[in-house]
Design a protein around this nucleic acid. Structure first.
Length: 637
RNA sequence: GCCGGUGUAGCUCAGUGGUAGAGCAGCGCAUUCGUAAUGCGCAGGCCAAGGGUUCAAGUCCCUUCACCGGCUCCA
């Protein structure tokens, strides 16, 4: 008999070879119903695993770390089986679980239409009802290659060939469906409760655009119908926050066929942008930056010198002036180089922090454009820091602090990535490892959690990226800190050291917001259009109850306007309820109702967007209060 | 750029080969109202663009453009 300890349930004795599932059944209670897999001595295994030695077991349920992943991975296998049942002639790609769901990539002979999803879902239900056990089998590399080769599963064959020599090759099968898979999986298909196929998309095999494009079906699965409903409801809510929808509804910006990827800012969107810039200038002045501006169009020779001509050309726009070739800038750095070169610097002048709100143009592929998140013309809140080599760590640290300060003001949480040398790059291996090492050191020293993004650096240097999430959970790169030893070299930058000799400065490229466009898009989604007072395009609207108060309402408006408050007057011939409704929908922070009583008292009845009616308040008092709130930018102190 | 989908009034959407519709928004008139929609009326369209099939095309076919969901790429 084996002695098995079940975490939280005590010790059990079972004969050797008993499966975990059987043991859990013996243990009784909901544990056997809720178990998805088990941790056997620390590693996650199938419930169908037979026990061979004394061990301790920790049950994995849907809410545990790998629970949902295993659950949905099984769902993806069931989907693949359903697809094979329905459309025999189909080759399988890969089908992992992802955040909130799963997908499977297929190569169909005839492309699949979205109306087919329902049919596949129906077939999945059948398979679930059959409650087929998922059997794990291990096979030798040759056997596996033969097995999948005979079935014409070319992609699986490729996967097997790519496995390391010492890999255990395992398959999971349910019914007559067998898939290459490391597992673990649910014990049987019947353990799946609700599955839902969500959408259909194209995806390159192995994410490589030179390889065939497969069709990817996305879906999700939950152990309870209610959880699925909640998930779908959450997605619906998230769609309402989509900045493209709110941008139109709140009249912030627009796009036109005449300029795909080129945003048009409307007056209200422009207010947000200017407020962000103003805040940015204040903070950067405080952090020791000076501001410059460089031209949008510059001569080809500059781009050849910077390396953009060679490394970035496919993203650039070109034009001719007289007979000369010019490029529209895709980055601000070469301009900043020329600014630096216009002067003479001593080591005492460094670090020199030159900031630039620089509008750049990049030719992004048509399919990648996405509202304000991904555009072809955007303004970077750029800066180039020229410094002594020994100042690198302190400067990187300073920028990280600045980024953190900014994101905290807006209540964003972010994740950090370190991107290393890409294939297409300039500079020696030594330079790259020195620069990458420096960034790595600062991140480690600050104790920041970060992910390494192999090969994702800029062509001139490695970078630390800051990513924010949109309403649907997609992440977007915003802030970035790029360390660059290349440009100073290319442009022969120098400073005079204490020794009276010329030395080469190091340089950082960095943005905090990233791009104004993207950051605004994220703000719209983050706040659901209800901007904090200091950013709100319209901060207050005066609502007279009848025409008799129009004169007074105008006085109120004038008085607030004189104080620099963005205030509208709604003097249309509508009922108050109508005007309030509209102001609420426009997410205007304050509604100031001006009726007979208020006029007599020189007050306004204040209605706040979130809290509702706050009752009457003398106009002067409201004025002081709103001004204070604007100045504080919603921050404490 | 690639795969799939979608394009009808400012917005949201009906319209499945036989005379372009609704709600909201807009405009006009009436109404003068106390915290999320007052009533009546009037306008508003080269059905994304171009080509084709047909006696007849918003509707079927082709091409292009834009957008949406992904992939790739990136701030």
């Amino acid at each position: 008999m084996l002695k098995i300890e079940i975490e939280g349930r005590g010790r059990f004795e079972v004969p050797r070879g008993t499966t975990i599932a059987a043991l859990l059944e013996q243990a009784g209670g909901k544990i056997s119903r809720e178990a998805i897999a088990a941790k056997l001595n620390g590693s996650v295994v199938d419930l169908r695993t037979p026990l061979q030695d004394d061990a301790s077991i920790d049950v994995v349920t849907f809410d545990d770390e790998h629970g949902a992943e295993i659950y949905r991975h099984t769902a993806s296998h069931v989907m693949a089986q359903a697809v094979k049942n329905l459309y025999g002639d189909v080759r399988l790609g890969i089908g992992p679980a992802i955040e909130d769901g799963f997908y499977y990539d297929f190569h169909f002979v005839e492309p699949l239409g979205p109306e087919e999803l329902e049919k596949i879902e129906g077939e999945m239900q059948k398979i679930i009802k059959e409650d087929l056990p998922l059997e794990r089998t291990e096979m030798s590399r040759d056997a596996a290659l033969r097995f999948f080769g005979e079935q014409g599963e070319a992609y699986k064959v490729e996967l097997i060939q790519g496995l390391p020599d010492d890999a255990v090759i395992s398959c999971y099968g349910q019914g007559d469906f067998v898939d290459l898979c490391a597992g673990p999986h649910l014990a049987s298909t019947g353990r799946l409760k609700t599955v839902k196929l969500l959408n259909l998309a194209g995806a390159y095999w192995r994410g490589d655009e030179k390889r065939p494009m497969l069709q990817r079906i996305y879906g999700t699965a939950f152990p309870k119908k209610k959880m699925l409903d909640e998930y779908l409801a959450r997605m619906e809510e998230a769609k309402k926050r989509d900045h493209r929808k709110l941008g139109r509804e709140l009249d912030l910006f627009s796009f036109h066929e005449e300029g795909p990827g080129f945003p048009f800012y409307h007056p209200r969107g422009m207010v947000i942008r200017r407020e962000l810039e103003q805040f940015w200038r204040e903070e950067h002045r405080r952090a020791g930056y000076e501001e410059v501006q460089t031209p949008i169009i510059l001569n080809r020779s500059l781009w050849e010198q910077s390396g953009h001509w060679e490394h970035y050309q496919e993203n650039m726009y070109f034009t001719k002036i007289d007979e000369g070739d010019y490029a529209v800038k895709p980055m601000n750095c070469p301009g900043a180089m020329l600014v630096y070169k216009a002067g003479m610097y001593s080591y005492r002048d460094l670090p020199l922090r030159l900031a630039e709100m620089g509008q750049v143009h990049r030719h992004e592929k048509s399919g990648t454009l996405h509202g304000l998140m991904r555009v072809r013309s955007f303004t970077q809140d750029d800066a180039h820091i020229f410094m002594l080599p020994e100042q690198i760590e302190a400067e990187v640290d300073g920028v990280m602090e600045l980024v953190d300060k900014f994101y905290r003001v807006f209540g964003f949480t972010y994740n950090v990535e370190l991107s290393t040398k890409p294939e297409k790059s300039m500079g020696s291996e030594a330079m790259w490892s020195q620069a990458t090492g420096a960034l790595h050191a600062v991140l480690t020293k600050k104790g920041i959690n970060f992910k390494i993004n192999e090969g994702d650096g800029a062509f001139y240097g490695p970078k630390i990226d800051f990513h924010l999430r949109d309403s649907l959970g997609r992440t977007w790169q915003c802030g970035t800190i790029q360390l660059d030893f290349q440009m100073p070299e290319k442009f022969d930058l120098s400073y005079i050291g204490a020794d009276g000799q010329k030395h080469r400065p190091a340089m950082i490229h960095r943005v905090v917001y990233g791009a104004m466009e993207r950051f605004i898009a994220l703000l719209v989604e983050h706040y659901g259009g209800a901007f904090p007072l200091w950013l709100a395009p319209v901060q207050a609207v005066v609502i007279p109850i009848t025409e008799r108060q129009h004169g007074y309402a105008r006085e109120v408006q004038d008085s607030l306007q004189q104080e620099g408050i963005r205030v509208n007057l709604d003097d249309r011939s509508e009922k108050m309820g109508y005007k309030i409704r509209e102001a609420q929908l426009q997410k205007i922070p304050y509604m100031l109702v001006a009726g007979e009583k208020e006029e007599a008292a020189g007050s306004v009845a204040v209605r706040q967007r979130e809290t509702g009616d706050m009752g009457p308040m003398p106009l002067s008092e409201f004025q002081g209060k709103i001004k204070q709130e604007i100045i504080s930018r919603g921050l404490e102190g």
